[in-house]
Design a protein around this nucleic acid. Structure first.
Lengths: 334, 334
DNA sequence: TTGTACGCGTTATCAG
DNA sequence: CTGATAACGCGTACAA
């Protein structure tokens, strides 16, 4: 690898002058600057970030540890957002993801510390409480798509409650009167928050208790979650006769479309359908296309890095939880 | 940050002895080793990889540059595989992904070089030829899920031809006699290879030309690919009356299920369905569950790092293209 | 505007 | 088995 000294020799100056040019120090004679830049070009010099890091205090490296986030189609956008934002701020992201059978979160954290990462973003694959080991408090930390059960750590989460509130309001505003909510496993955070938002909206419209229904389409058997959408949807449609159905995720809506198809009910005409996730191309491949509340993963990723950098610089020290708004992608299903 | 010298002082030895312990040099008195390990523990010492890198020649860092791979649900597994393998080999992956509006591949490559990455893996989001700038030849390089048009660079790609051949053979072995292949845009690499594999299998079974049909379900309009599965499937079923349909991807199979549902044709009984991708939970959420040929993304990711490390060490210098086998996930749709 | 001396945290060499 | 001492590539302080 070519070093700053070789460039100096080539350009006929001391290595310090080269260092100045590399670091955009204006106090260099234009003539020399040109010579040096030419030498850099010719030799293909690249600054050695490791050497720089030894000398300077800041590494400009941010660790990104994920609980299989980069594995989960739904939430890779968190990573993309984090990376984009990091680039904008002149930081490099070191990505590590936890494999259940492989290194633990603490191992990965050690890696980050050995690379002198200035801070760490910890991401989870779905919105949940996560109890991180205390080692995570040794440097600035932001949790994304998850949060500390004791609220003692900075966190970025999707505003599931607002999401459910908004979409329910839209359904009601369009005149739907009997809404069935096919929610996810009621134990998970998102399901609880969405239920709250759903109920708040209904209350605002003074909807009677017998004019809505909430059911779970996930059953947990021996720790494994199994999907029972078709069976539940069938029963709810028969017994409750909803004029609109709100689904816990796009895959639920997908199964629902099959149930409706078989019953000869036309989505968007005989019955309204809405959903959460706005996952990839699923909403668009359905006919009619599915209106779905997007989880703001990309924005959350960006926000996590912004927040972390503020923590590092001390500009912002609050450990408050930050909720990111969810937007309905409005299509043809209601 | 605590340094090796502070540990040395605490343990009452010279810093070089600490260095020996950190690097597992056996020539240290047991008594001292214990003392030093205790000091390391107490002070929470973490070796400074940057400083080490300045002195040593190897950085143990591998760059992973992706053409939005980590954005694409289908192929994040490449990243996961690469990361797992890197961990096993004691390497750290630095992940960068290209945003069309953001830094170019060459910018990211520079980043890698500044971090003194020992080599670079370049991944694409779908199997395609990619013409990389010549700068990419400045260090060991492996392309994954893509390849150099001139075959002058090491590449790892899925064996799409074998995949199509195998699944077609399985269909024929199960007694299906009139197969329709709803292929992807015929311009893309995977579509061409799969068509070849499909035809080879038919030939082996001496299937007549009028006993099969191949259609594209993607139309390219002004550079944008639009999906016309439903319309094509409808026509093919009416005109050709296949007893089995092979789909270019799971999303095509998904649309097909709707078409079949509407026509009252039962998948797996009245008609067989097979597909490519084995994408996430889609095949399992369909009823009956979809038999799909998995693209071996995880294995490809692993293979890319293995290959790169061999290139770096000089153990393997061939730039040959490596094809990774695809396995059918056999379920209930045929 | 430019160069010299020094230090960052580590590994390598070699004498003790 | 241990510890001076040099070196890695670069940034900082200060002098020229």
């Amino acid at each position: 690898m070519v070093t700053i000294k070789q460039v100096a020799k080539r350009a006929g100056v001391s290595f310090k002058t080269v260092s100045r040019v590399v670091n955009n120090d204006p106090t260099v004679k234009e003539e020399n600057r040109v010579k040096i830049l030419a030498a850099i070009e010719e030799l293909g010099y690249q600054p050695n970030l490791a050497a720089r890091m030894v000398r300077k205090k800041n590494s400009d490296v941010i660790g990104f540890i994920s609980d299989e986030i980069s594995t989960t189609p739904a939430s890779v956008d968190i990573l993309r957002g984090a990376q984009d934002r990091a680039w904008e701020l002149g930081k490099t992201l070191m990505v590590f993801n936890i494999d259940p059978k492989k290194p633990s979160a603490s191992n990965l954290l050690e890696q980050c510390r050995q690379h002198r990462a200035e801070g760490v973003v910890y991401g989870a694959m779905y919105h949940q409480p996560v109890n991180l080991p205390i080692q995570f408090d040794q440097q600035p930390l932001v949790m994304v798509n998850c949060f500390d059960p004791n609220q003692q750590r900075a966190a970025i989460i999707p505003d599931d409650e607002q999401a459910a509130y908004d979409v329910t309001l839209q359904l009601l505003n369009k005149g739907y009167k009997r809404i069935a909510f096919l929610n996810l496993n009621p134990e998970i955070v998102a399901a609880k928050l969405r239920l709250a938002g759903f109920l708040t909206a209904l209350k605002e419209f003074s909807v009677d208790e017998d004019q809505y229904i909430v059911e779970s389409v996930e059953k947990v058997v021996e720790g494994r979650t199994i999907d029972i959408t078709r069976e539940v949807a069938d029963r709810v449609i028969t017994d409750f006769k909803p004029d609109a159905i709100l689904c816990g995720k796009d895959l639920v809506a997908l199964s629902l479309y099959f149930v409706l198809e078989r019953r000869g009910l036309r989505v968007g005409q005989d019955i309204g359908v809405a959903s959460f996730d706005d996952w990839d191309c699923i909403p668009q491949i359905l006919v009619p296309s599915l209106s779905s509340v997007a989880l703001p993963y990309y924005q959350m990723g960006r926000a996590s890095v912004t927040r972390l950098v503020n923590l590092i610089s001390g500009k912002q020290t609050s450990l408050a939880t930050e909720r990111v708004k969810c937007q309905l992608s409005s299509r043809e299903s209601f």
